[in-house]
Design a protein around this nucleic acid. Structure first.
Lengths: 166, 166
DNA sequence: TTTACTGCAAATATTTTGCAATATC
DNA sequence: GATATTGCAAAATATTTGCAGTAAA
């Protein structure tokens, strides 16, 4: 049982195959834009926004219009490859095979760390709710990461010494 | 244990007092707009949007500008009375004392049901994460409520019979 | 050759901001 | 009376849409 992979994510190649299949099955086309966008999206280890994608693509000198990026990420969501959610009224995306991880979101820098908790997952996977059919769940813990805690403490110290100067 | 109130939240009067204290402590003023907005916000048993508030207030013939409503709900969040989150890139608000409930969100109608799970709460209250200081958490289960499941089934049946007619 | 896709620009929706008039403390 | 708050309108931000030209199948 040790280290039995519960939700380690699919290899990228499988994700790409799955998306190709989705396109074919739905009479949609495989275009260089779509391939590049998926490839770049998979390079994010965590979540990303449309803006992040624009930047990542432009760093590779691959210029794609925003309309196409929006179109494509929504297609990826439809295909079940990524999951869309909303943070501060902006769409974020993350691999659909990441969802059963606990998300630690830092309220200060916005970064998300994924944590696996097999006890919790086992419990939740077995859990049923009355009059409700579960499709997936998202567990996000909000707080402050140590990096930011340190910065906040330093800033506070500075503010106090500034006061003394006055 | 039976029928123990679903949400053991604070009484509204206490919430109002807390907000008043927050205003006083921060050199802010108590205005009729702020009082009415808080009162209306507390009448939502679950989450609500700014648009919901506009409607609720206008039903009471209390016309407040959107700018003031935005200003006030953000103040309520700052005061720790409500929590703000984002669904489909729109701000939603809910009482901060609701957060430790499991949220069952119907992907079809968007309604949220709160469920208490003492096992889960006890586990999470004790849970610590490395290099991270928790402030609160949100556990949302996405799926389809029975009401919507029924509607979807009916719609499907209709589609099939429509096809036969063709 | 058909028609799905791309990219641009315009449209939409939500939230934020600047500022004059007003009301609270 | 000083200044925080309100409301309006304009600005900012993210996303969606319409459409002409382009390219995948």
């Amino acid at each position: 049982m040790r280290n039995k992979k519960v939700t380690d994510t699919l290899p990228d190649s499988v994700v790409i195959e799955n998306f190709d299949k989705f396109l074919k099955d739905n009479g949609k086309r495989r275009t260089p834009e779509r391939s590049m966008i998926l490839e770049s999206a998979l390079e994010f280890s965590r979540q990303f926004t449309v803006e992040d994608l624009v930047e990542a693509l432009s760093n590779k000198n691959f210029i794609v219009s925003k309309a196409t990026i929006y179109n494509t990420v929504l297609l990826l969501v439809e295909a079940g490859v990524f999951r869309q959610f909303s943070v501060e009224n902006r769409s974020h995306f993350e691999r659909a095979d990441n969802v059963s991880f606990i998300h630690l979101m830092c309220e200060h820098c916005g970064k998300v760390k994924l944590v696996k908790d097999t006890n919790f997952m086992a419990y939740m996977n077995a859990r049923r709710f009355p009059a409700f059919t579960t499709s997936y769940y998202n567990f996000t813990v909000y707080g402050v990461c140590n990096d930011c805690a340190r910065k906040i403490k330093q800033a506070k110290r500075k503010r106090i010494s500034d006061k003394k100067v006055k």
